[in-house]
């Protein structure tokens, strides 16, 4: 029951990410999504959570809910380009694409049933929809920060799928994934900084004009 609510909130946060026009709001939504996602391994699965999974979940929530937003807000502040998203696809088109993706995720999850104990069709649907939303954010927005957010959402979807369907993975793998994502966001933050310093903008469509 509580897990259902969290999964629906995850779906809603993805919808908000695809619809929102403000960068600050999107960064905060991704942070909230990270915190919500940290709760999923504690509630899903057939096992009762032990101390180990609690520590991993708390570390994940801290990194995704506090460190990433801080980094991204800093990158946004230094870019000095205002708070608008500058999409290729507008509000209505994005929501239409979101609904299409939602239907696709539903059909996919219904085809994949039955699932192992602890996983539900809703969880698989939420995971696929997160992956879809991440990909959509990467291809449909101009400013480079959106690509970072899209990557995070995509990773959230993969994480959700793993947490729900795979059940218990080893501590080393979980911490490794978390470190990978952390390093990736650092690298992307640095790239953003360099793009920003060299070209006075962060628009990915203009990067294709690069000449030696």
């Amino acid at each position: 029951m509580r897990l259902d609510w969290i999964l629906v909130l995850l779906i809603l946060s993805n919808l908000r990410l695809m619809a929102s026009a403000r960068m600050g709001a999107k960064i905060r939504t991704v942070a909230a999504q990270g915190v919500l996602l940290g709760l999923v391994p504690l509630l899903a699965g057939a096992h009762t959570p032990g101390l180990r999974s609690l520590v991993v979940a708390l570390a994940g929530m801290f990194v995704k809910g506090a460190v990433f937003p801080w980094l991204l807000h800093r990158a946004l502040r230094e870019s000095r380009e205002g708070r608008e998203v500058q999409p290729y696809i507008g509000y209505m088109g994005s929501l239409l694409a979101a609904l299409t993706g939602l239907v696709g995720a539903l059909l996919l999850s219904l085809r994949l049933a039955p699932f192992p104990a602890g996983a539900t069709a809703l969880l698989v649907m939420a995971a696929f929809f997160s992956i879809y939303a991440g990909l959509f954010l990467i291809i449909s927005r101009k400013r480079a920060i959106n690509q970072v957010l899209g990557f995070l959402v995509l990773e959230n979807g993969v994480f959700l799928f793993a947490a729900g369907v795979m059940g218990r993975t080893s501590l080393l793998v979980e911490v490794g994934i978390l470190l990978d994502v952390l390093v990736a966001v650092f690298v992307m933050g640095l790239t953003l900084f360099h793009i920003n310093r060299e070209f006075d903008h962060m628009e990915t469509d203009r990067l294709t004009d690069l000449r030696d």
Partner: peptide, 21 residues
């Protein structure tokens, strides 16, 4: 206003889809 309405439509469609699981 249309944005609010389309947002509400998205919520309603999501509710209908969730009911199909």
């Amino acid at each position: 206003v249309p944005q609010l309405l389309v947002g509400a439509l998205t919520l309603a469609v999501t509710a209908a889809l969730l009911g199909m699981i």
